[in-house]
Design a protein around this nucleic acid. Structure first.
Lengths: 297, 297
DNA sequence: TAGACTTACGGGGACCGTAACAATC
DNA sequence: GATTGTTACGGTCCCCGTAAGTCTA
């Protein structure tokens, strides 16, 4: 007993006529005869009473019909679900992002993606980069933002964004006169440090150690607006990705010399297959950046 | 997507290994590879992550697995129901019998049949023969007992029993001395008539009319024991199928001259297919009589 | 004679088995 | 080298289409 046999059987049962059933199935009538005959032989019972000009179900046929309808319905439902998955009308994306990118980069991208695939469930959460790597490892996230150059070797991913870290001071601050600044000079300033992601903090520590000086951190927070307010009020300087202060007249962004460039990648466990929804988001992300680059040129 | 593909898919999903799945399906491993590949191509999505030494389900695979289990379960259930129907572990027999046969013939047969097919639902009801024909016509009975020689032509059936109608008198009655009696002489006796089935009553009417005499019916009832009591007490004579009085020392059964033989058939609507349960009972009935005849010889 | 189902026969595709290959430990 | 999955090839069986046959109105 297979699905094709049931399909033919139901067609015949519904129209009570082999010829019409064949037409509705787009096959010839003898094919229907054969299929039904095979099915009857397999079940060792007759399913239809052959009367002149029409056929009708036997008692056994009626029992089979009930089951056949359920089975075919279930097939249809399963196939539909698969199509929905394929067409991104179902599924889930669980993404971990850094605080900065979560505030200044992803909202626009995700909004555009959501518009394309409105029925996907989307979970975006902000974590530090180390935490993102850990949660991906623990399968609590599907993917996340990591630094391209130090991607864990049990993970794989794709580079999607390059951005510059700049020193950030109030436009009234003496530093605002400079166009570039060395990192060594920068860390001697009173520093307001964003501690959400450990990366910039690590950069400071490393440089201090290399220069053999103590860092001059006067304030730590993971609230970007708070840092911006304090910097704006002239309490110190900080470093941000350039987009954070771009367009904000209160701040001057000063490139480091040599410049500090971050390459961001979206990454996932190497051993783990991305669901179609996640894969679609990655593709979308790469494509989004390519489009943006083309437009800017 | 067909049932075979799902069967293979579930097998692989359950053991997480193509080779073992192939073994459990009693096919070779490349066959499994091919089937899964076809399925993946058809659904346009990958269902398994191929890792070293084992495979595991993708997100989409998990969704399919849930559906596949339901579908295969439904198949199993349907096949089981068909087997049960075939093996007479389900189904219903709705049989109409005459009063006499219901009391003196069918109990033993039905008991034997019940023993063979204990899970069949059985409905046996006593009606007059005309009523049986009517109820079959109305589809309220599947089959019933009718006279072979006047089976309605919209019905068909099989002869299963031949029995003799005999005059029945108390052993103390003067008629008990006779070995035969003509029907003409019989109807001049004071008659106790069994009115459950109209057949014997009709026979009396017909003969009276032919002989141009009034019938001498002094009592009518459809209670066989009551008639037997009255006959036993010498209040009159009656006619019965021979088995009714066989072995009862109070009565003498006197063959008519010429003998009156009834051929009983079990019959059903010609246009209507007998369910396997009913068919089985018919076969059983014929076989039962054949066995009995062989034993007696 | 027309309409409906059955039977017989041939072709194409699906599935399975064999065998050789690739990859990982 | 052993185990696991993939690819290629050939054979068999199933299903479909064509054509002829049977039955009934």
């Amino acid at each position: 007993m297979n699905s094709r046999q049931l399909q033919v059987f139901v067609a015949v049962a519904e129209v009570g006529n082999f010829t019409k059933a064949a037409r509705s199935l787009n096959i010839v009538q003898p094919a229907v005869s054969n299929t039904i005959k095979k099915l009857e032989e397999e079940l060792q019972m007759s399913l239809f009473m052959r009367k002149d000009k029409s056929v009708s179900l036997t008692t056994e046929g009626k029992v089979l019909l009930k089951n056949a309808r359920i089975i075919l319905g279930q097939f249809k439902k399963a196939e539909l679900e698969m199509v929905e998955l394929r067409q991104m009308e179902r599924g889930e994306v669980r993404l971990g992002v850094t605080n900065t990118l979560g505030m200044y980069y992803f909202p626009k991208v995700i909004e555009a993606f959501k518009q394309r695939h409105p029925n996907l469930n989307f979970s975006v959460q902000v974590f530090g980069m180390r935490k993102i790597e850990q949660l991906i490892e623990e399968d609590q996230l599907d993917m996340g933002v990591v630094m391209l150059e130090n991607m864990p070797n049990n993970m794989t991913g794709r580079h999607f964004l390059t951005d510059e870290i700049v020193a950030c001071a109030s436009v009234l601050h003496p530093l605002a006169q400079h166009e570039t600044i060395t990192y060594k000079k920068f860390i001697r300033e009173p520093l307001l440090v964003f501690t959400g992601g450990a990366v910039q903090r690590e950069l400071i520590e490393k440089t201090c150690k290399a220069e053999n000086i103590d860092s001059n951190v006067i304030f730590e927070t993971n609230l970007i607006p708070l840092i911006k307010n304090l910097v704006s009020a002239g309490h110190g300087v900080t470093s941000f990705l350039r987009p954070v202060i771009e367009g904000d007249p209160r701040f001057k962004g000063i490139s480091f010399n040599p410049p500090i460039i971050f390459d961001f990648a979206i990454a996932w466990k190497k051993s783990c297959h991305l669901s179609m929804a996640n894969q679609a988001f990655v593709d979308f992300l790469i494509d989004y950046e390519k489009q943006k680059k083309n437009t800017n040129q």
